[in-house]
């Protein structure tokens, strides 16, 4: 557990009066308030620190205690002295039990340092507070995103099973109401914002609802034309390659692309680009025939 310099957090001098502290708090709170910094975890953490510093420095009694014991927290004697005093009086009492040393903030929005100094029960008031919103990322295979499917994941020690509609986009965010951090004093839970990260292990590239595939064809099929069968998420489909097809020719197969999100039965298109493969390791006969062709 690290000592937190609340004066430094608010950017004020140790001799600052209540008005200066209030002004400094207001200024920083405006800058880092979660409502003006959505999805910014650093700003949320900073806001918690500012709130905690204000909670201590704006309260004469807490500030006195902090000034007395806070800076010497790491010195065993002062710490023990305070523990003993706390056991006797239990001014904010958390049962005098466990002290965590992670130095991080817990769900209540207070650091371990604060809880150790003022007790876990020393919350701002008994007012109801909504829990913090939580942001998380969920990896989904592109092949799975082709179908509406269910996926289970774990967050805050809880297993959540959700139905992911076909056609979900990479980077798309959905809100799961009430699955964020728990509220305080009976306040409602925060929400969970889930960002989908699509993992593509297929030969297809996706752009919005369309799929793109690069397909090799041999020289003879490109010149003379022919039939071709390719695997797609819709199953095998047959394509007719026109005679004299040029390298990098792109064809469109309507309705064989990715499903349109929340629009059942609607699909984007599939674009196939033909890459003509020039034959290698020619036999003497082939070389002879190509030479003849070139002289025609």
């Amino acid at each position: 557990m690290e000592f937190i310099d609340y004066y430094k957090v608010l950017g004020v001098d140790k001799s600052a009066d209540a008005d200066t502290i209030k002004k400094a708090y207001r200024k920083l709170a405006r800058k880092y308030h979660p409502d003006v910094n959505p999805n910014d975890k650093d700003a949320h953490k900073k806001f918690q620190q500012i709130n905690e510093a204000n909670e201590v420095l704006s309260d004469a009694e807490k500030r006195k205690k902090y000034d007395l014991y806070g800076k010497d927290w790491e010195h065993g004697e002062a710490r023990q002295q305070y523990y003993n005093a706390q056991r006797q009086s239990q001014p904010f009492g958390n049962g005098g039990g466990q002290f965590s040393y992670s130095g991080d903030f817990d769900d209540s929005g207070f650091s371990d340092f604060f809880s150790s100094l003022f007790g876990g029960g020393a919350k701002r008031s008994q007012a109801k507070f909504r829990g913090q919103d939580v942001n998380a990322t969920l990896e989904v295979q592109l092949s799975n995103a082709f179908h509406t499917h269910q996926q289970t994941f774990s967050i805050n020690g809880k297993n959540i099973r959700i139905t992911i509609p076909a056609g979900i986009e990479n980077g798309q965010v959905i809100k799961l109401k009430g699955h964020g951090n728990p509220g305080q004093n009976g306040g409602p839970n925060g929400d969970l914002y889930l960002t989908f990260q699509l993992i593509n292990n297929t030969p297809f590239k996706r752009m919005n609802n369309d799929l793109y595939l690069s397909q090799e064809i041999d020289l003879y099929t490109a010149v003379l034309g022919g039939d071709l069968t390719i695997d797609t998420p819709h199953g095998k489909i047959k394509l007719k390659v026109k005679p004299e097809t040029q390298n990098n020719t792109r064809i469109r197969v309507k309705g064989k692309g990715f499903p349109v999100y929340k629009s059942e039965g609607n699909f984007g298109d599939l674009y196939v680009t033909y890459t003509v493969k020039i034959p290698q390791n020619l036999t003497e006969k082939q070389r002879q025939l190509f030479t003849e062709l070139s002289k025609l």
Partner: peptide, 11 residues
């Protein structure tokens, strides 16, 4: 959200 901005930040 507006209420929070008004009450907590005096906006």
């Amino acid at each position: 959200k507006a209420a929070r901005l008004h009450n907590e930040l005096n906006v």
